[in-house]
């Protein structure tokens, strides 16, 4: 998929672990892990809102669009 999730980078910048984030946004670690590894097919606005609130960032800081990623997947 051409949409990249940069949750790992944001967590690193905020010195926060995935478990901590899971606790603070009240989303299961398994679901956050799916999001972090780019395996999620969709993200709810409520999830985005909760993560952005806790990490004090914008949705654009978490997501990026890179058409080259899709081409790499297809190859």
């Amino acid at each position: 998929m051409a949409v990249l999730v940069k949750l790992d980078d944001m967590l690193h910048a905020r010195r926060m672990t995935l478990s901590e984030l899971a606790e603070r946004v009240d989303i299961t670690l398994a679901n956050l892990s799916i999001l972090k590894t780019g395996k999620a097919r969709a993200i709810r606005f409520s999830t985005l809102d909760a993560i952005c609130t806790v990490l004090a960032c914008q949705p654009g800081d978490l997501l990026a669009h890179d058409p080259a990623a899709r081409q790499e997947e297809e190859e």
Partner: peptide, 16 residues
């Protein structure tokens, strides 16, 4: 209705 419901559920699978 069943068919549409199943597709909707498939859409929700993988939603975080």
């Amino acid at each position: 209705v069943f068919d549409i419901g199943i597709r909707m559920r498939a859409d929700l699978d993988g939603t975080v």
